[in-house]
């Protein structure tokens, strides 16, 4: 029994090593003096200095963050209303249809979404650049938010709404004072998911970005194609650390809420 457990632990360890080794490999050589990924000759921060002195790169980082924040904010608003609409839909078939339409967007390949957006924007005559990237990011983030918020809504007892109405609340009061506070954890989860999806999206952005506007993933891709510079490694390391930070923030914020829920669950038992 114990032996078996050691075996499975070892297997799990191997899986994580395989998954994370390339990232750590890349991070390791971002400190390499030699400027290649074959011989480690000495420790240096040069590549990081290069990243921070690259004005164009800094501008792209700022653009990427602006797109990510704006798109996740707007898609959170749209997604919450979308989830409410699905929640309040009466017919079961109609409800399932709406939900399926939402899920199809989640699972369809980014390449297809990117290509179709490219066609759409060209048809509508929208100039490729900041706006087109922002719109595309909002579009693929909304289904994510819907999917994170809807379970919270379904968890909510419908009598809560009845109770609020019974106590004199108008429809807007019910939404702002009862429904929104109840689904807040789901809204936060949706926001952070949308944020990370937007930050590391490559395929969709690659299609809809035009001349003079780029996001980090697209930029790293094009630089990596031009030849290996260790500044790409340095940049990737930084992005990885930032993503890690977001994941940790998300983890601790949801864990705090999970605790309250656990307490109430224990009380009922």
């Amino acid at each position: 029994m114990v032996k078996k457990r050691i075996g499975s632990t070892l297997f799990l360890l191997c899986v994580f090593v395989v998954l994370y080794l390339p990232i750590f490999y890349l991070m390791f050589y971002s400190f390499n003096k030699a400027g290649n990924m074959t011989h480690f000759t000495g420790f240096t921060f040069d590549w990081y200095k290069e990243v921070f002195s690259d004005k164009r790169l800094i501008a792209i980082v700022v653009d990427t963050v602006i797109v990510a924040l704006l798109s996740s904010l707007l898609s959170t608003v749209l997604g919450v209303f979308g989830a409410l609409a699905i929640y309040l839909t009466k017919g079961r078939h109609y409800k399932n249809m709406l939900l399926s339409l939402n899920n199809i967007l989640m699972v369809s390949p980014d390449v297809i979404i990117g290509a179709s957006f490219l066609i759409l924007f060209t048809l509508l005559g929208i100039k490729l650049g900041f706006i087109s990237v922002l719109l595309a990011h909002i579009a693929f983030s909304v289904p994510i938010v819907v999917l994170m918020v809807l379970p919270k809504l379904q968890e909510m007892s419908p009598t809560l709404i009845d109770a609020a109405r019974d106590l004199g609340a108008k429809r807007l009061d019910v939404l702002l004072k009862v429904v929104i506070p109840f689904i807040t954890p789901g809204i936060f989860a949706g926001f952070f998911m949308a944020l990370t999806y937007s930050l590391d999206d490559f395929a969709v952005t690659f299609f809809v970005t035009g001349n003079g506007f780029s996001t980090l993933s697209v930029e790293i891709y094009s630089r990596a194609r031009q030849g290996i510079s260790m500044s790409v490694n340095a940049l990737s390391t930084l992005i990885f650390l930032i993503t890690l930070a977001i994941v940790l923030v998300y983890y601790f914020s949801t864990r705090g809420m999970g605790k309250v829920k656990q307490l109430s669950g224990g009380e009922d038992a």
Binding site: T159, D162, F182
Partner: peptide
């Protein structure tokens, strides 16, 4: 007349207390 304009109040079977308050 909608429920928010009636002079009656209800105690619900599942209590329907607001968990965030």
């Amino acid at each position: 007349i909608p429920p928010n304009k009636r002079q009656v109040n209800t105690v619900f079977q599942d209590y329907a207390l607001f968990p965030h308050l």
